[in-house]
Design a protein around this nucleic acid. Structure first.
Lengths: 333, 333
DNA sequence: CTGTTAGCGCCTTCAA
DNA sequence: TTGAAGGCGCTAACAG
């Protein structure tokens, strides 16, 4: 691969001149610039960002650590981040932590070695140790999707509690009283917050949350399916279900259909996240929209502002979604 | 951020000694090693991969360019690639090309500037110009999902034509004769190949493919929905539909339900790709499984073998999927 | 067993 | 308008 030195020799100029024509960083006579450009083209010279980074102490690369790029929710965030990063001249190193703290730590370590300019972290079971790593190296970071206890950093994400509240409120307004909640595992911060919103709405309506109405399950359609089976088999079955994600809601819809419980006539279902697919389930799913793409963009923009020297106070950016009412929710039987 | 030199000074040794204890690259007396390690720990020294790369000419970073990380299919590939890359000591720079040749080119350029060790390319509308770029810089590359005319490189992907054939064959075996094909846009290589498999199966069965039975549409559930509406409105409607992706198939299922056409009693539907969600639609979707995770792994492994010097002949790795028969397909009415 | 030295490719003062 | 030279942080001969 051609180097600047080779270009300089071939063009009969010094490397500094080549550098300057490339970066437009001082005036170069028209003919010299012409000649240099020609040689660059001819030799197919492409500057090394590695060498440049060593000099500049900037890599124009940011890292993003998520539990799993395959989840539609994280995929949406990543897409937004990638778009804004590209627009602002940055590349994105993607790391899946796979709910494995060891792996998360390993990724963080190599990201620091590679001298990323900043990090977007959807924290899994991160422990103090890890975030301390970041703080010590003073690498800009934005927390995504949920905050991290004891970590003082910019945050961009949805208001999960509000989403859970909106969904439940909607069901209450329709007249439901026995409203179940199908939620992911306890250690998923987002699920917990959404469940809180659910509980708050119930309490506001003067209903005592019945623990039997809250089912923890695996965060998959299968999980939703199993949970719904359990709920629908109860003697006094709920008339509505709030599922803390659309993926779960799909399983709930499927289970209801299988047992012969018509939605929404006998059971209302509300999801969360508004997957593109949610508009094409049968019946079409009522859900709370999460603006993942915009969130992703906001994360990258916030981070890059920090990289560019913004030293203002820590910011918390909350992006609200709204209830999207479709066909899976209606008045109780 | 601490440097090796600082560590060396503080430990009272030379930088080369520090380098050697870090890399275990020559014997160092126990006490010196001890001391160096202590200082590294104390100063929170983390070596710079940037400087190392400049020396070594290796970044241990690979790039992946896909149309859109949000598509479940690409998301699955990316996940597999990330896993294998991590396991083998590489990071992944993710680039979305967004069906925009200009953007694809820009990404390729920065990836080369950043001196990635290799590239995984799910090509969009790439033109000769771009791949020539790669060849000129002699960066290892594997083509993913579909080949690229005129580009002689390793390939890892599914056999789209076979998938289309299997799906259609299944419908024929069930006794269907009027089988439609709902497919994505013409410029999507994978769709075209799957449609070919569809046509071949029909021909083998002695059926002349009816152009009116092949509907091009947007590669989304909405697209599938619209296409199905059109098909079901025909005087002689098809009794079965092969959709070239599960996302499309979902739209088809939704349209059928809306028009009151029962699946599979009056209409059989087969998808392609086997999204996790496909098992939880109503009815559960018959589809052709694509082993995306394994494909992704194979891509990374192939690429890294090349990076490590494998100079054997170009390889084409085809990973087959199988038909997953569920509830959306049955005998014709 | 350890240190000195010469770069890797680029940018950037400092001089001319 | 241009060049020479030093150094970013690290590795790897080459010496001792």
């Amino acid at each position: 691969m051609a180097t600047m030195k080779q270009v300089a020799e071939r063009a009969g100029v010094s490397t500094s001149t080549v550098s300057h024509v490339i970066n437009n960083t001082r005036t170069v006579s028209a003919d010299v610039r012409q000649r240099v450009l020609a040689v660059i083209d001819e030799m197919r010279y492409i500057p090394s960002a590695i060498a440049r980074s060593l000099k500049n102490d900037r890599t124009r690369t940011i890292g993003i650590v998520v539990p799993d790029n395959t989840s539609p929710y994280f995929a949406g965030l990543i897409q937004g981040v990638e778009e804004a990063a590209f627009r602002l001249g940055y590349n994105l190193i993607l790391c899946n932590a796979v709910e494995d703290p060891g792996r998360e730590a390993a990724h963080l370590r190599t990201l620091i070695e590679k001298r990323i300019d900043g990090l977007i972290l959807v924290a899994g079971a991160v422990h103090a140790q890890l975030t301390e790593l970041l703080r010590n190296q003073s690498i800009p970071m934005v927390l995504a999707d949920h905050r991290l206890a004891g970590v003082h950093a910019d945050y961009v994400g949805p208001d999960h509690a509000r989403a859970g509240y909106l969904a439940t409120r909607h069901l209450l307004d329709l007249g439901h009283r026995r409203i179940a909640c199908v939620r992911g595992p306890a250690d998923r911060p987002g699920c917990g917050e959404r469940a809180h919103g659910y509980a708050r709405a119930l309490k506001e309506a003067g209903l005592a949350p019945d623990p039997a109405n809250i089912v923890h399950t695996a965060p998959s359609s299968e999980g939703g399916f199993v949970a719904a089976q359990k709920l629908l088999a109860r003697e006094v079955a709920p008339t509505a279900v709030f599922a803390t994600s659309d993926v779960l809601a799909l399983g709930v819809l499927c289970a209801a259909a299988e047992v012969g419980v018509p939605v929404p006539q006998a059971l209302s279902v509300v999801g969360c996240g508004d997957l593109p697919l949610a508009a094409y389930t049968r019946p079409r799913l009522t859900t709370v929209f999460y603006p993942t793409y915009r969130m992703g963009q906001a994360m990258a923009e916030r981070l890059i502002a920090r990289i560019d020297g913004d030293s203002g106070a820590v910011e918390h950016t909350i992006l609200h979604g709204e209830l999207v009412q479709r066909e899976s929710s209606g008045a109780p039987p």
